[in-house]
């Protein structure tokens, strides 16, 4: 009798631990995406300054600038889904990279302190987003492992938890960030 009660108590505790752990892991995924969101917002906030500074010095890069302005407007529109935000960031990264390349043709802009500051803050935000994406992927992997492995899989089935997709690594995450490439390409 006592043994049966003991087994029930142990099973109950194990059940609570597994249940809480699954909820914790799901929350970790949500938190990890929030971190990406914060970093993206920080990056989008850099754009007005960047555009204004570049505008003062460049005369012939209208297309590139208008592309960045357009992307910034989209970023400010709000109501974007997570995928849309990430897609927007991908396009922005590519456009701003293009813009940085053209800076080579404008020595005055290249030497401008404000621009240099923006350039390093942009590089910083790029690495921070890469770190946040890796954190998100680690949280998703952890969550997927928890819901697919026994005995978590039983609880996950009852709680209707589904596996999530990790974010594909961007080119920037795969390679080493090189100062040469960022500033002198």
């Amino acid at each position: 009798m006592i043994l049966a009660a003991l087994i029930i108590v142990v099973l109950l505790i194990a059940g609570i631990v597994i249940y809480n752990s699954l909820i914790g892991k799901k929350n970790q995924v949500t938190n990890a995406f929030s971190a990406i969101d914060v970093m993206l917002k920080k990056r989008f906030d850099l754009l007005p300054n960047l555009i204004e500074t570049v505008k003062q010095y460049t005369k012939y890069e209208g297309d590139l600038l208008s592309k960045v302005v357009e992307l910034r407007a989209q970023a400010n529109a709000g109501n974007l889904t997570n995928d849309q935000k990430l897609n927007l960031d991908k396009q922005l990264t590519s456009s701003v990279k293009g813009l940085m390349v053209t800076v080579e043709n404008y020595p005055d802009l290249k030497a401008n302190q404000n621009f240099l500051q923006l350039q390093s803050t942009w590089a910083e935000s790029e690495e921070q987003i890469a770190a946040a994406r890796r954190t998100y992927n680690a949280a998703v992997t952890d969550y997927n492992d928890a819901i697919m492995m026994f005995p978590g899989s039983i609880f996950a089935g009852m709680m209707n938890y589904q596996p999530m997709n990790v974010l594909a690594n961007t080119e920037e995450e795969r390679k080493n960030i090189s100062a040469k490439e960022l500033f002198n390409s």
């Binding site: 990890a32 971190a35 970093m39 690495e127 921070q128 890469a130 770190a131 946040a132 890796r134 954190t135 680690a138 995450e173 795969r174 080493n176 960030i177």
Partner: peptide, 12 residues
């Protein structure tokens, strides 16, 4: 901080 750790510890 999980994100900061990965910001410091890049793959490189």
């Amino acid at each position: 901080d999980q994100v900061e750790a990965r910001y410091i510890l890049t793959p490189a």
